[in-house]
Amino acid sequence: MEADKPRKTSAAAQARRQFLLDSARMACGVGLLGIGIGLYAKQAKALPPLAVRPPGALAEKDFLGACIRCGLCVRDCPYDILSLATPEEPVSTGTPYFVARQLPCEMCEDIPCVKACPTGALDHSLTDINKAKMGLAVLVDQENCLNFLGLRCDICYRVCPVIDKAITLEQQLNARTGKHALFIPVVHSDACTGCGKCEKACPLEAAAIKVYPTELAKGEPGKHYRFGWVEKDKAGGSLVAPDVEHRYNLPEGQRYESGRGLNPDAGSEAAPGTQPAVPRALQGGKL
């Protein structure tokens, strides 16, 4: 009887030992797998710049937990622009996206893709498609944009569903000709929905204007920045007292006009005869 007892305990200890060993084996083996998948998941959090999420998509880090990859948004898109990422694509497997250069969002007023989403990964509080923020258009290539070259392409401006709000044309002097205007397309982030129609329509071989994820496209001023003119507007008057008009030491015969810069003084308008000399060859007369 006495001899039995230690043997029993040792059998129990043996079982306990085995249990702990098995558990450790499982935890370590599966843990290794988990670390692998976890690191992969960290990498897969980055959305490549060319992939645009459907309207109303939560911020990418929340989207990847909320989207259950069912594809109902894909199904309810009447223009078939959305697709679900397959495993080899650089977008998180099974999540919906579109590539603006191939097919941009048509901005349906009833936003069927958002309504179809069962989880709210596409936020149901988005009810006005013009408030969508799928991304932000950026005129990336100012060297090849036809409008920057002085041509009146204007296509991105014309196709924009939020014309004159999301993209405006700003006049600048064409320094090349010296006498023409450049009509520079300027994107305004407060109105741009990121639909990608501008990118799709850009006539260049590769688009000069592209839709990027907003956080990639947008800068952010320092939190401590204060702009004098903004503060002045807010305060309703100058914050620095006294606000005296600046006195300039101007060249003779010039006067300064706010917004226009230096101008010949009206009183000292140059007489016709005193124009700067033009080479005779260019005066049209015979030499």
Partner: peptide, 10 residues
């Protein structure tokens, strides 16, 4: 831990 549906990747 990751805040994403990590298993769905694989």
């Amino acid at each position: 831990a990751t805040g994403t549906l990590a298993w769905e990747l694989v």
